[in-house]
Amino acid sequence: MSAHLVPVKTYVGVFLVLMVLTGLTTGVAFIDLHAWNTPVALAIAVVKMVLVVLFFMHVKYSPSLTKMVIVAGFFFLALLVAFTLADELTRIWSPQVHGWSILLPILQGRF
């Protein structure tokens, strides 16, 4: 049993698609999509990554165990980013430190 042989034209095809996507992501950056520029750029990058992983890295033909390691890798990356942002984006950047006095209006019935 030798490894699955991917035809050369598949590699060249994937390469050409990657070239088109590189051109696309560069071109789109010069168009104002308002809040969508970054999501579009990241979506194109993810598609490019999936193509490289599946074909250049042969994961399409790899055992399920290998696929699970990859999914686990990205799962832990997602945890890292999600918990970092959960902290960072939910901090209230108060200009001054309030003690318990911040509760005074409520305690005094003035709210």
């Binding site: 992501t25 560069t26 950056a29 010069f30 104002d32 520029n37 990241l42 990554m49």
Partner: peptide
């Protein structure tokens, strides 16, 4: 690099 390229070179506002 596929991720570094858009994140560093193409940060929103290129069109400006």
């Amino acid at each position: 690099w596929i991720f570094l390229f858009p994140l560093l070179y193409l940060v929103g506002g290129r069109y400006l």
